[in-house]
Amino acid sequence: MAQQNGMVERRGAGLWLTHVGLLVGIAFIFFPIWLAFVASTVEQQEIVRPPMPLLPGDQFFSNYARALTSGVNAPVSTMLLNSMIMAIGISLGKIAISLLSAFAIVYFRFPARRLFFWLIFLTLMLPVEVRIVPTYEVIANFGMLNSYQGLILPLIASATATFLFRQFFMTVPDELAEAARVDGAGPMRFFFDILLPMSRTNIAALFVILFIYGWNQYLWPLLITTDPEMNTIVMGIKQMFPSGDDTADWPVIMATSILAMVPPVLVVVGMQRLFIRGLVDSEK
């Protein structure tokens, strides 16, 4: 930026105040995470005996190794893998299905097209929690309890993503579809050669959102995974809490919490570059 003054004029005191405000805000939000991290690097006794330590201890490697290999009910590495499969399955599935359904709704004229659109739209009003009992029934009858299919399939349809792609496809000029027709591309060829590459920024943005959505699923995996080997990490943390007289293994639980945070953060940071680049060289 050549110009020092942007749209908002920045002046000494105001600038500092803003920064102090932001720093305080960040510290406020970050403090619990810091505490969790500290707790994951010390021994059990240090946590339960007040005051709580505020600086990391020397048990980092042993606590994390313990969490990853044995955990409390199931090794955290297994739960991480389960969560990863579920989150990726859900986001890729959602993207594939909603791309195709948006393609159908925007580019094909079929009977009751509007009706189908509104039916899809209606499902927006029915989140997993509302239909959880019948969904459970269906999945149980299919024998999909404690399986990846059971974790992924019920969450794989997305009205939001369909709607988003529909809106995007409607901004693509009709002439592009016509040019492809003149060039001899059939509908699916047009979809894969032209529409899909053009939507890649939308896909990237959506992937981030959906991955986090899938990763953070709590209630559904809690219901259908009774086998600890199939636990996902977000619900797994809750399962680690002791019931009855057992003592909680806090350092391992905290290590698990920190580990549960890492993949979404990596996805956000990694994909952010991709979709900001996509937004900058916007093309249509």
Partner: peptide
């Protein structure tokens, strides 16, 4: 179908495929 008619069309807004290079745009058909 248009492609079987042995015609080529130039559109008002050009209708170039935005993600393809000039070469690929011309070669696509």
């Amino acid at each position: 179908e248009p492609m079987d008619r042995d015609i080529a069309m130039v559109f008002q807004n050009y209708a170039l495929y935005p993600h393809m290079s000039v070469f690929d745009n011309m070669a696509y058909g």
